[in-house]
Nucleic acid binder design. Structure first.
Lengths: 206, 206
DNA sequence: AAAGAAGTTGAGCTTTTACTCACATTCGGT
DNA sequence: ACCGAATGTGAGTAAAAGCTCAACTTCTTT
C-alpha cells in the first residue's frame, strides 16, 4: 500500500524552503523531461538537495506531483473564485466575458506546467482526483446557471455545464499553448464569449 | 540519436503475426498500466514473445507507441474520409450532423486506447507529430468551410476551424470516456450539432 | 534434401530508478 | 555554552527497465 502524504511536516523555515525548492525543481523537470522521464533523483539534483532530504518529505514521485498540483490549483482557484464573486450580479454578457477572461488568465499562470499536469499525468490511482479544481469551477457554473434560470431541470443543467465548461476549457487551453497568436488583441476571447452567449441565450430563451 | 523506425521489416506471415501480437499487447499494457508504467519487458510477456523478438522489430517503447498510433489512426481516418465524401454536397445542417456523428464513432473504435494516446503520451521528440490525424481532419473542415463561403479570409477561416474542431473533438472525447450516459439516445449529438450550426450560421450570415 | 534467409529465443549485461539509513549539521530554547 | 529535536547528506542496496547477441528453429528456394 503506497503512501501518498508527506512523511514529515516541515516545521522550521529552513525546511519549508527546502520543500519549496523541491517543488520548484519538480516543475522544472516535469516541463523539461515530461512525466515519465521524471525521476526523484533528477528532481533532487535539479533542486540541489540530497535525495535523502527529498524522501524526508515525499515518499515518491506521485506525491511530488500531487503536491505541486495542489500548489498550482490553489493559485488558480483564488483567481477564479474572486472573479465569480465579482460577476455574481452582473448581466449575462458581462458574466460570460469575465469568466472567459479569467480562464485565459488561469492558463497563463504557468502554462507549461499546467499542460504537463493535465495532458501527461496519468489519471490513475491516487492521481485520479487531481482535478479538484475542475469540480469547483463546475459548481460555480452551476450556480450561475441557476441564478439566470431558476426552473432549470437538473438533467438540462448537467448538459449545459458539460458543454460550456468543456468548450471554454479546451479553447483556452489549446490557444494558450498552441495558438498564442489567437490571443493577440482579444479576438479569441470575443469569439469564445459570443459563442457561449449565443448558446446560453438559445438554451434559456433569454 | 534515437532511432524510431522498425529495424527489420517483417517479410513472412509468421513475423507479421508476431508484430501484430506485439502491437496488440502494447495496447493492452498501455491501457492497463498507463504510458509510464509500460515497459518493453511487460509488453513482451503480455504478447507471449521473447524480448529479443520485440527488439527485432522495434528499437524502443516510443517506436511501439508510434506504430500503434499509426494503426489506430488509419482506422479512424478511413471512417472520417468516407463520411466527408458523403457529405460533400449536403446542406449545412446535414454536413454538420454527419460529421459530429462520425467523430463520436471514431472515439468509440477503441476508446481506452485513444484516451491513453491523446492524454498520456508525451508530445515530445519523435511523438510530437503523433497527431497527423488531427491535421487531416482540419483540412477537411477547411474544405467544407470554403465550399460554404468562397470569400472567407484565411485568418477568419483559421479561427473558425480552431473553434469548430476543438469543440467537437473535446465534447465527443469527454463524453465517450467520462459521460457516456450523455450519449444515450442522441441528446449530445443533437446538442453539439446545433451548437456548431448556430455558430457557423452566425459567422457566415447564412 | 541442402542451404541460406528469416524468425525466435532468453540468459545476462548495463543503466536507470527507487529508496534507506547511519551519520553530520543546524536550529531553538534554556 | 549546551542539548535535544529538526533537518540534511549521499554512499549504497535492490529492483526494474533497456537492450544485445550467439545459438536455435522454421521457412523458402532450388
Amino acid at each position: 500500500m503506497k503512501q501518498i502524504k508527506p512523511r514529515k511536516r516541515p516545521q522550521q523555515k529552513r525546511s519549508r524552503d527546502t520543500v519549496d525548492t523541491i517543488l520548484n525543481a519538480t516543475a522544472e523537470v516535469l516541463i523539461r523531461e515530461g512525466y515519465d522521464q521524471t525521476s526523484t533523483n533528477k528532481i533532487a539534483v535539479e533542486a540541489g538537495v540530497s535525495i535523502g532530504s527529498l524522501y524526508h518529505y515525499f515518499p515518491n514521485k506521485e506525491a511530488l506531483v500531487l503536491a505541486l498540483n495542489r500548489r498550482l490549483a490553489e493559485q488558480e482557484l483564488d483567481l477564479i473564485r474572486q472573479t465569480f464573486v465579482e460577476v455574481s450580479n452582473a448581466p449575462l454578457r458581462d458574466t460570460i466575458r469575465k469568466s472567459v477572461e479569467v480562464m485565459v488568465h488561469m492558463h497563463r499562470i504557468e502554462p507549461e506546467l499546467h499542460r504537463v499536469l493535465v495532458e501527461q499525468v496519468p489519471r490513475m490511482g491516487p492521481l485520479r482526483k487531481i482535478n479538484e479544481i475542475d469540480r469547483q469551477i463546475i459548481e460555480m457554473i452551476r450556480e450561475q446557471l441557476l441564478r439566470l434560470k431558476r426552473e432549470l431541470s437538473p438533467a438540462e443543467a448537467e448538459l449545459m455545464i458539460f458543454v460550456v465548461f468543456n468548450i471554454v476549457e479546451t479553447l483556452t487551453h489549446q490557444a494558450v499553448l498552441y495558438q498564442p497568436q489567437l490571443l493577440q488583441g482579444e479576438r479569441l476571447i470575443d469569439e469564445i464569449s459570443s459563442l457561449v452567449e449565443l448558446y446560453l441565450r438559445k438554451k434559456m430563451n433569454l
